[in-house]
Write a protein that binds this DNA or RNA. Structure first.
Lengths: 150, 150
DNA sequence: CCAACTGGTTTGCTATGCTAATTATCTAAG
DNA sequence: CTTAGATAATTAGCATAGCAAACCAGTTGG
């Protein structure tokens, strides 16, 4: 019976969590367009490029857990926006190295400065203890994803 | 200075949380297709219809925080899959009432039974204390969204 | 030097959002 | 009543974002 209630509580948590994640992600997508002109996907890619230095599209796709064609398109958008630059990979003629340029860094900085960013604005209304819970949850979500791979 | 560090920690948490939510949502979308043939959006809609009884498309759009045209299409998909049924609203000729049919309930039950559902499977590997953290985070995310409306 | 592999892109499909415009019905004012 | 305006739903049209399959070009191993 302990197992039974444990399982049903897990299923319940899973269901609520799914709902919360999906809805929050939806809200983020809407908000992002207004705030920075970048969708969450684009913003995440830009941040990763910035954080992990110049890297190839494949490496980036790996980091973001999307397939290569998807990353190709995201990069095309960021390039069209003038936020990144590519140089030929000296080690491999098929490949290119992607890096954030001045405009991209500026955009990232602006974004970071934004006090009113969707989540930050809402986090400010929570108790420190609640913020800590969410910080911990973010870690757990990432760990859950990485653990069992894809 | 307290404010400064508090703010930067908030921004940091916001950024990590955004990343975690976006990536998890992406993983969910991929997984859902394999597991049940329903995307998270579709599964969420079906669950809401089931939970909240027969209701109109508008009410459902409200619950799911999407616009009506979006819900129209989601419902069309669920109907094409034979999981829901519509009856004319006796009170308003413009409207219809949407309800889950036998096949839909069967699908929901199967989904619930699924021990291997993405999140549940991963939750099972966490400490009870960690599961509790995520449950609490789910609540907080929902509350954050509802508070300031959208 | 050629065959097989691999990184990247292109192409074509699906799903999910949105807004704006249409259609059908309802409701209220005259 | 009847007509004008509001409202529910849909349709149409646009954009993003994911996938897989096919394709090109450069790399590498035999």
């Amino acid at each position: 019976m302990a197992t039974r209630t444990l399982d049903s509580s897990l299923a319940d948590t899973a269901s609520r969590l799914r709902s919360a994640v999906v809805r929050t992600s939806r809200a983020l997508r809407q908000e992002a367009a207004v705030e920075t002109g970048l969708s969450p996907t684009q913003a995440a890619a830009l941040a990763s490029i910035n954080r992990c230095g110049p890297l190839t599209p494949s490496e980036l796709a790996e980091i973001e857990h999307v397939k290569r064609p998807t990353m190709t398109r995201t990069l095309a958008t960021l390039e069209r926006e003038g936020l990144i630059e590519r140089t030929r990979d000296p080690a491999d003629g098929r490949s290119s190295l992607v890096a954030v340029n001045a405009a991209g860094r500026e955009r990232l900085a602006r974004q970071r400065r934004r006090k009113s960013a969707y989540l930050a604005r809402r986090l400010r209304k929570l108790d420190p203890e609640e913020v800590a819970t969410l910080a911990r949850a973010a870690e757990l979500l990432e760990r859950m994803r990485e653990d069992e791979q894809g």
